[in-house]
């Protein structure tokens, strides 16, 4: 895995899954947090004609320097939330990179040995919280535990910006989900070592 210092200078990430899983907002929250920290950022969504369902992904780049291409083929990290995304993006993680996946939706993770592959049961945990939609924030929390590309405070500030004001009553549960994700990842990391 690239060092914490490296990932704070430049992180090239892809988030992918089904439409409706919160793929785009996960990426957007991270991008906002990058802006809070005065980083250069780009958030490039795949876009399709369907409003719901289908596949969705976004490329998020956080950098200390001006960003060149917003479109990439290789990534430092990938957060994948369904099997097709695992199949498509696992080979595109740079050696030493991180592949984080939602283990409830993915039955066949990559068998690569040159990258860190970590599964998080985010859907199960989200259902335990009685809000399935927090799954993406659990994944984001886990990701930030493994790749602290931005500070926790920045993420909380970003959440308030990404969530429209009428949903601000959901801020606490999102915060809770982030913390839960962090805890889960910490556990997994210990197991990994």
């Amino acid at each position: 895995m690239n060092s914490i210092n490296d990932c704070r200078k430049l992180e090239e990430l892809i988030v992918a899954g089904f439409g409706g899983q919160g793929v785009l907002s996960l990426g957007m929250t991270l991008a906002y947090a990058g802006m809070v920290e005065n980083k250069e950022i780009s958030w490039m969504p795949s876009y399709g004609p369907e409003m719901r369902g289908g596949t969705a992904n976004c490329i998020v780049i956080l950098s200390d320097n001006k960003i060149s291409s917003p479109i990439l083929s290789l990534f430092d990290s990938a957060i994948v939330l369904n099997q097709p995304s695992m199949d498509k993006f696992a080979p595109r993680v740079k050696p030493g990179g991180l592949l984080l996946y939602e283990s409830g939706n993915i039955f066949k993770p990559s068998t690569r040995t040159d990258i860190d592959i970590i599964g998080i049961p985010a859907t199960t945990e989200a259902l335990k919280m009685k809000n399935a939609k927090t799954m993406n924030m659990i994944m984001l929390g886990a990701y930030l535990q493994l790749k602290p590309v931005v500070q926790n405070d920045s993420i909380l500030e970003a959440l308030a910006k990404v969530l429209p004001e009428k949903y601000h009553h959901l801020l606490p549960i999102n915060r809770q989900a982030l913390e839960l994700g962090e805890a889960l990842a910490k556990e997994m990391k210990t197991q990994l070592v």
Partner: peptide
Amino acid sequence: DGAIGQMMEK
């Protein structure tokens, strides 16, 4: 183009 139109940056 569609990418510059759809992407987010500062």
